[in-house]
Each structure stands twice: as structure tokens, then as C-alpha cells.
């Protein structure tokens, strides 16, 4: 049967892992922000900015990893803006986030037009190439699916482990989680809730931007205006789906990406001839909403998410 053939092919799982990679970076970024108590709706715009910043840096002559670093820095800059407005000033995280998304997107498009005024199609760069891990890539099915990816994909999976270790095994991680659960207790320890939350938003935004840069430096080799296309909003749903835990978020991102890869392939089967392709394209968004609804019953949301903290107040 068609479906079985698809689900047991290495190419399908390789595609799923590839599609999951930018989501993993950005979901981890959002997760860090939310664990510290800040909802970051700047994610969509920050991904656009990261995709552009990384790509234009490489186009200007930087090595690929230099592009990743530039994207990370661009993300941190918008993170600093978001953090300043939402943490010490305690402005509505909804409005600030939407504002940051609008600003990051429009600044990106403006810069694109200033740097490349008269191009009809954006220039291409040499993107990250797949790297076959010795021995592991020889394993049947699993090898070509998981161990013949680009270095940036390996970095995404590595980052899940790093973020999980930092969050659960270090004093810093404890402070971040406490800032999102019980900021009063953090302040009572003599730590600055403001500094912890701002730091989390800045670093988290950097990861979101790297997620965007994956699109231009690894998945494709060029920048298009609508390339992020709602992925940021999907990542916010993935954080909820992953119950604010890095491991579960990774699982959610891969599952989600597998579904996305499946719908692309189903379009080419006899089903695709009958069902309009728009329905397939809707699936990721519908799935995200369903995930939000299903997971809403399990309330593991950080207790102080979207709760502003003012010192001396209780």
C-alpha cells in the first residue's frame, strides 16, 4: 500500500528530520522564554530576520557558520528589544510580541530592498551540504534518514540535549524555571528576576533566528519574503504540545514534520488527485490548533507565564 511504502522509506524520514530542524531551534527558543515567564510572540518576525541576516552575511562573504552567528546576533538584538519592553517595563507581552514581529519583518524586507534594489530573483549561496556520519550512516533505513543530514540539523538535536541539561541540571536552569514558576522566591534568594527573564528572552530569540537561518542556509540556498510562512506560530503551539519540556518538544517537532512530509507525498498519490492541494497545506495549521486543544487539558503551563514581576510587590 502507498502509505506503508512512504512511511518505511528512508527518504521520507530524512525529509521529516530536515523539516523538523528549524522548528526544533525556534521551539527551543520559545520554550526558554516561556520557562522564564515570557511569552515571545516576536518569534515569527525574528525567524524572518534570522533567515535574512544569516543568508545576507554568507552572500557578503562570511563562512556558513559565520552566517549562523550573525543570525543568532540579529535574533538577540530583537530579543533585547522584546525583553526591555516586556520585562522591566512589564508591557503587554501580546502587544510587544506582535510589535516585534511587525518591526523585524518590515526591517528585514526594507534592508533586502536597500541591499538588493533591482533584483528579480534573490541570489543563491552555497548552503550547508549533507554530512554522512561515518559508520552510523551505513545503518539500513536509520542511517540515510538520521545520519546523512546537514551539520545544522545535528546542531539542532545537540541543542535539545544542551538546553535540557542546562534547564534541569544547573543552578542557572533552576533560576530560569523558578523565574517562570515563582518569581517571588527567586527575588527572595537575592537573584534578579529581571536579569534572568531578560537573559532568557535574549538567548531564546537568538535560537529562533537560527531556526530561521536554517531555512536559508540549509533547507534552501536563498531568501524569499514568505519563506517562514507561519512556522513561528506553529512553534508556539509545539511548546504547548511539548508541555514546556525540551525532549517532548523535540518529539512534537519531529511528529509534526513527519506529518508535513507525509502531506507533501500524499499530494502525489491518487488521494492528491481528488483532494484539493490546499487541504494538504492546511494540515500543519489545523494540526497545531488540535494540539493546542488536546494539550490544554494537561495544565503544565509555567505558573508565572505572562505575569509581570515588580520588585517589592507581592
Amino acid at each position: 500500500m502507498d502509505l506503508i511504502d512512504i512511511l518505511t522509506s528512508a527518504a521520507f524520514w530524512a525529509a521529516a528530520i530536515r523539516i523538523a530542524s528549524p522548528l526544533i531551534f525556534a521551539t527551543l527558543g520559545e520554550l526558554i522564554c516561556e520557562r522564564a515567564g515570557v511569552l515571545n510572540l516576536g518569534i515569527e518576525g525574528i525567524m524572518v530576520a534570522g533567515a535574512f541576516a544569516g543568508w545576507i552575511a554568507v552572500w557578503a562573504g562570511l563562512p556558513l557558520w559565520g552566517g549562523v552567528a550573525v543570525a543568532f546576533a540579529a535574533g538577540m538584538a530583537f530579543g533585547l528589544l522584546h525583553a526591555t519592553l516586556s520585562v522591566p517595563f512589564g508591557l503587554s507581552q501580546h502587544v510587544v510580541g506582535i510589535g516585534v514581529t511587525l518591526l523585524a519583518t518590515s526591517l528585514t524586507f526594507y534592508t533586502y530592498r536597500v541591499v538588493l534594489p533591482e533584483v528579480s530573483s534573490p541570489p543563491k549561496i552555497t548552503a550547508f551540504q549533507p554530512f554522512e556520519v561515518p559508520i552510523l550512516s551505513q545503518i539500513p533505513l536509520l542511517g540515510p534518514a538520521f545520519f546523512a543530514q546537514t551539520p545544522l540539523t545535528y546542531a539542532a538535536f545537540l541543542l535539545v540535549i544542551v538546553v535540557a541539561l542546562v534547564l534541569y541540571r544547573t543552578p542557572l536552569g533552576l533560576a530560569v524555571r523558578a523565574a517562570g514558576e515563582n518569581p517571588q522566591a527567586v527575588a527572595a534568594q537575592g537573584l534578579s528576576v529581571t536579569a534572568i527573564r531578560m537573559g532568557a528572552v535574549i538567548v531564546g530569540s537568538g535560537f529562533m533566528a537560527v531556526g530561521g537561518a536554517f531555512l536559508t542556509l540549509s533547507a534552501f540556498d536563498s531568501f524569499f519574503f514568505d519563506m517562514v510562512n507561519g512556522r513561528g506560530w506553529i512553534c508556539i503551539a509545539l511548546v504547548v504540545f511539548g508541555a514546556w519540556k525540551p525532549g517532548k518538544a523535540l518529539l512534537g517537532a519531529v511528529l509534526f514534520a513527519a506529518f508535513d512530509a507525509l502531506q507533501i507525498r500524499l499530494q502525489q498519490t491518487p488521494i492528491g488527485a481528488v483532494v484539493p492541494y490546499q487541504l494538504f497545506l492546511m494540515m500543519p495549521y489545523i494540526l497545531s490548533i488540535l494540539a493546542l486543544v488536546v494539550m490544554s487539558r494537561r495544565a503544565e503551563v509555567p505558573a508565572a507565564l505572562m505575569v509581570t514581576f515588580n520588585k517589592g510587590e507581592r
Partner: peptide
């Protein structure tokens, strides 16, 4: 269900535009 409406309304924008395209 207590689902944040920011995300759902945003996602509906994409869903509905695809519906219009159809």
C-alpha cells in the same frame, strides 16, 4: 479549553487564506 486565542486566530489566518485559494 483555555487555548490562547492569539495563536489560534493567527493560525486561522493561514487556514482561511488557503481556503480562499481553494
Amino acid at each position: 479549553f483555555g487555548v490562547d486565542e492569539v495563536v489560534t486566530t493567527l493560525l486561522f489566518n493561514f487556514i482561511f487564506l488557503l481556503f480562499v485559494s481553494y
